[in-house]
Nucleic acid binder design. Structure first.
Lengths: 140, 140
DNA sequence: ATTTTATGTAATTTCAGTTGTTACATTATT
DNA sequence: AATAATGTAACAACTGAAATTACATAAAAT
């Protein structure tokens, strides 16, 4: 979903896009988009201006943004390896396994991110564009 | 959480363990454990018998079970790359991006699994055992 | 055989986290 | 000034996971 926003931004390269327009594009409401944009701003992936006629745009060219960065920008909100289960006393494995698993998952997540690094927003957009016959309609 | 169950099973190697005991160990209820065990049975990671004095045990030695297998056994239930967002028409990127992202995430997930393959249940257990000072109490 | 112990599974409820909505202050442009 | 946009908080609605309950079934123990 974060990727989707960035893809739209990349699509209209350079232009400032309002959160309302983005929201319509990914079929949600402006507030959700703005919340997401805050993460992306923190990660220095987008620049947002307030005021009339403003909006957001990529802060770098799509070729210089890879998906691992995007993943990291939002990983807290969309994390996956969060066991979020309360540790249980009185179990010899239960006590320490959490910490050990964290280390293992961290390594696995690194592997995942290294793979995501291979794809930039620009190549993603190319893939989407050339991915054959999707019912293409003009955007509003 | 699936890993946790298997770790306990590995801990009492060979013994049959009831779902009730496992549930207490990971601090949940027996039904959750049984549902999880069904996945693990399908993946041929555990063997379960009904009847009095029965329960589950690993179907292989912990050294021959790696974490990628565990991940795959439960990935449908605990999947992470599920954008679960309805596709939205009338957006040129929105239409095709789903499918493209799926391909990319599949690759990333492969990378993740290849990393998980490096760790077996046995090494995990070793790590837990030697991971220093955790308040160890005897299990019930 | 009957009782006991355990799994398999469905139906329902409970709970938490996410998402959506509304509202409004703030800021920049026109 | 007036307008158009973001930032942000408060709250409602929704969704999905987990817990609970219940019961049928199967295997073992007696």
């Amino acid at each position: 979903m974060a990727v989707h926003v960035l893809a739209v931004l990349a699509y209209k390269e350079g232009d400032r896009v309002t959160s309302t327009l983005l929201a319509g594009s990914i079929n949600t409401n402006p507030v959700m988009v703005r919340r997401l944009l805050l993460d992306l701003q923190r990660a220095k992936l987008v620049e947002t201006c307030k005021g009339a006629g403003s909006g957001s745009r990529l802060s770098r060219s799509p070729g210089r943004i890879n998906l691992a960065e995007v993943f990291r920008a939002v990983e807290d909100s969309e994390s996956f390896a969060t066991p979020n289960r309360k540790p249980n006393a009185a179990c010899p494995v239960g006590n320490c396994i959490r910490e050990t698993l964290n280390r293992i998952f961290l390594s696995a997540q690194n592997a995942l991110e290294r793979d995501l690094e291979k794809t930039t927003l620009a190549t993603l957009l190319d893939m989407v564009k050339t991915s054959g016959a999707c019912g293409q309609k003009k955007v509003s």
